[in-house]
Design a protein around this nucleic acid. Structure first.
Lengths: 201, 201
DNA sequence: ACCTGAACACCGTTCAAGT
DNA sequence: ACCTGAACACCGTTCAAGT
């Protein structure tokens, strides 16, 4: 706050402030001018480091994928057992938990960004995705998973937990469908169904 | 355009214009003032019919759930066979198809709306959800589905197709995970996995 | 190189006024 | 009741100017 001139790392300071603003005031509360004000800098100092607002959002999104990846890793470290079921259940809880704690951040991460224009964002998102692929590969090695490409299984898992997160955030799940289940219980049940299938066998 | 004064149904005219603007210019292109201009009315005539911009978005979202419901119904009418597999595959294709054709509309539908403030929106969304519940109930009657509440199975299906749609729209699925599969093939494969599970049996 | 202030075209919303 | 125009406080972005 003191030397607003030349304070070294305005770029990452702006990103951090953006993440903070996002969790406080939500998506619509995030403006470039407010961001600059927050950091104590003129309203177009950000343009020294970002082409436009979308570029700032892309950087914030990238930060989100990093945090999500860390959350998944943290969950994998405290497993009760090493089975694929336990791994996937832990990863699912990490994902949904992150989503519910940072709904607006998730929105930016999956918003309409010209992703081709932000290679760093793509790379980080893929790195996070790869954590899921790795889990599926472990499942393959132990012979517990169906014989399908690990990448596709990871994608399937991702679509599941992401869709669940989106519906929980948007509160689009009718109460009569929730049956008093907690978010955690719904997540556990969903993964269980994904593992065993919904067809009677 | 002639008698801009008293043209009868400004409310639904605005909603239709909003849906059109959404598919043409995307989310950021949708402003109340532009909407009014498009319809040929003063920039705050919309306030005669809507409390604020969010209320307009809620109405547009509701229209989206109606269209999505119709798309699902249409898909169910041209089934090759009546099995639960065929029904769910058709519903999934309808959903993903709608999502890819109206990505910004879907975003509004699942955006952050104070859903409690828009009971009509909730009701319409639930009505669309109920179409999925009905399909699951049919599955239960034919004894082909696992013994779990139809509402929860519908929710599981919904999270699947919605998550898949979101990831396809955001282009967050790495090419190496797609394996040259078309969107339709990915959808078919995902539902197949959901039906049979990903655990080796 | 890094930052600022003035300026431009837009926005959502409010309000007094018109028919 | 329905619509309008002026006004306010905010945006994102550009540009000439300052250090």
């Amino acid at each position: 706050m003191k030397d607003s001139y030349h304070h070294g790392d305005l770029k990452s300071t702006l990103i951090d402030a953006g993440v903070k603003l996002l969790s406080e005031s939500g998506m619509e509360g995030l403006s470039l001018r407010k961001l600059a004000r927050e950091v104590g800098v003129s309203h177009n100092a950000p343009y020294m480091h970002f082409a436009d607002k979308e570029a700032v959002l892309a950087a914030i999104a990238e930060q989100g994928f990093l945090l999500l990846g860390e959350a998944i890793d943290a969950g994998q470290l405290q497993l009760s057992d090493q089975s694929i079921e336990a791994r996937l259940q832990a990863a699912a809880q990490s994902y949904v938990n992150f989503a519910l704690n940072h709904p607006d951040h998730l929105m930016v991460m999956f918003g309409k960004l010209d992703s081709a224009a932000y290679p760093d964002l793509i790379e980080t998102a893929h790195a996070t995705f790869n954590k899921l692929v790795t889990i599926m590969q472990v499942g393959h090695q132990s012979g517990t998973l169906v014989d399908q490409p690990a990448e596709q299984l990871a994608m399937l898992f991702w679509t599941n937990v992401h869709g669940l997160s989106a519906l929980l955030i948007a509160q689009k799940i009718p109460e009569y469908a929730r049956q008093k289940l907690t978010n955690e219980a719904i997540t556990t049940w969903s993964i269980q169904m994904l593992l065993t299938g919904i067809l009677r066998n």
